[in-house]
Simulated scan of single mutants.
Amino acid sequence: MNKKIAILRGINVGGKRKILMADLKSLCGKLGLENVKTYIQSGNLIFNSDRKNAELENDLEKAITEIFGFDVPIIVRTGKELETTISNSPFLDKDVDINHLHLTFLKEKPNKENIERTLAYDYGPDKFKIDNKDVFIFCAGKYHQSKLTNNFFEKHLKVGATTRNWKTVLKLSELSRS
């Protein structure tokens, strides 16, 4: 079985769209996912499944809507995909403080025209690089003060997105190996 990571967007933030991790874990078991683990309350799942990522995204989204009554966009990656993403980070070097690094996961690869249009924006000193279905972000200050948000990338790339800080990305990778 392949290790998979599901990243849920916008749950348990500010007391809205609440899903208890125990309930989410139970739901995953009902969908046939195995060895389900959760990581922090913001909606990160690690599990085993040989099903395709897109199928898992669809089934999880549909089940959450039916059970909890609201839509939750979900992005699924394999553990190997996440390891490759981490190794491709253009901002990771020995001198960078990882507290300034973030990764925006894209639901699908954006088209070339939307990528080019998005790359025209410069919000220095914050920087970003789009690589396939990932957007690597370096924020000179705090992420919540940056203009490089989920909404920015969804609006300009015209694909679904959700962001995690680099420490969470590394922890998800670690958990997918255990």
Rank of each mutant, 00 (worst) to 15 (best):
S146C: 11
F70H: 14
T118V: 11
I40N: 10
Y39W: 01
L119H: 11
H156R: 10
S42L: 04
N151D: 11
I74C: 02
E61V: 03
S49P: 07
G160M: 07
V36E: 02
F136A: 05
D131T: 02
N35H: 12
I98D: 09
T38P: 06
F152A: 11
L119D: 09
N132T: 04
V96D: 13
N114E: 10
R51M: 04
N114D: 15
T85Y: 10
V159E: 05
L33F: 13
G69V: 02
T149N: 08
G29T: 11
V159Y: 07
V159Q: 03
E154I: 06
F152Q: 01
D122A: 05
L148D: 03
I115E: 12
D131N: 15
L92E: 14
K109P: 01
K142A: 01
N58G: 10
L33K: 11
A63D: 14
L103M: 09
N111C: 12
S49W: 11
N58F: 11
K94T: 09
H156Q: 14
E154C: 03
V36C: 01
K62A: 09
V135L: 06
V135A: 08
L60S: 09
T85L: 15
K107I: 11
N44K: 06
H144P: 10
V72W: 01
L33H: 10
P90V: 09
F152N: 01
G43I: 05
S49M: 01
D50C: 12
G43F: 15
V96G: 04
D95S: 15
V36Y: 04
A54H: 12
N44A: 12
K62E: 13
L82W: 05
F91H: 13
Y121H: 06
S87E: 14
D95T: 15
S42Q: 13
N53P: 05
T38K: 08
E116W: 14
Q145V: 08
N111L: 13
E113W: 00
T78C: 08
F91S: 06
L56W: 00
Y121C: 01
E61L: 14
K62V: 13
V72F: 06
I67F: 07
K158C: 02
E108M: 12
N53M: 12
D134Q: 03
E108L: 10
